[in-house]
Design a protein around this nucleic acid. Structure first.
Lengths: 151, 151
DNA sequence: GGTGAAATCTACCTAGG
DNA sequence: CCTAGGTAGATTTCACC
């Protein structure tokens, strides 16, 4: 249901989604029509959920990336739903995860500068009634940028 | 140099990179040729670095996502370079950041199951001579998936 | 795996501010 | 002079063989 050619195909599409069917065929030693057919199948199966542009944060004026750990005052569904609603409305928050362990939420944020990070924390996150504690760590370096999923 | 139309354009391309010039033109109330020209300009300027496919982890058999904090035994350039080399060769590690604070590296990993996570930690990370301590937290839920950068 | 019609892109042209 | 819209040729996709 997913052979090694499919895996090489999706690996390449994670690297370069604008590859043409001809490009993919050349890479996989397949005809363009076969490569296109495989890609269409992976899309319709939902394995490929879509395509996105990779942007340069610096060229958007985003110089500070940080991870923010957020602890909740109480662990109930209302608090959680309300906080998640807040987080989804904040464009600077590009990812949010709930983890095992003590911190309730881990946020990944991109902001223009340090004052913007402080504003986010003190004027958006901390005022929320369900939030009890917020701890942020700035990203100094990113030795491995978001590579795609392992295939 | 980057007007509101450009911003709406890149926002849409983060959402749906396979939009045609016609689609983008309709959205932005521009002709297809102008939308295509703006996209080409943003690509050549490097603001759009490329395009990638978004995959469904579950359909790839990846059921466990985790964040792994790694502390180094000593803080010197050789150790760091050696560890970064290791990390870049591990496909399960889809992101690696160095943060302010006590943990030296934060890794984001995708694995098939919990044993695979343990194997990664105990057979790949901990045996590295520069690594002193490893702490992992499993992702329970992802209320906000990797949304694009704020534009 | 191949083919042709349809869609799309791209380079060039013209018009208007 | 710069930006927008239009057009034709080249490229790519897609449905069918």
């Amino acid at each position: 249901m997913l052979d090694s050619t499919d895996r090489r195909l999706i690996a390449e599409l994670q690297r370069r989604a604008d590859a043409t069917a001809q490009d993919l065929g050349d890479l996989l030693h397949l005809s363009a029509s076969q490569a296109a057919r495989r890609r269409a199948r992976l899309e319709s199966e939902g394995l490929i959920k879509g395509y996105t542009a990779r942007l340069d944060p610096a060229k958007l004026g985003l110089s500070v990336q940080a991870f923010v750990q957020v602890q909740m005052a109480a662990h109930n569904a209302d608090n959680a739903a309300s906080f998640v609603r807040l987080v989804t409305t904040l464009p600077e928050v590009v990812g949010c995860w709930t983890l095992t362990g003590e911190a309730d939420y881990l946020l990944r944020v991109w902001v223009t500068d340090l004052p913007a990070l402080n504003a986010l924390i003190h004027h958006r996150l901390l005022p929320h009634p369900a939030v009890s504690r917020v701890q942020s760590q700035i990203v100094m370096d990113q030795p491995k940028a978001d590579s795609g999923l392992p295939v």
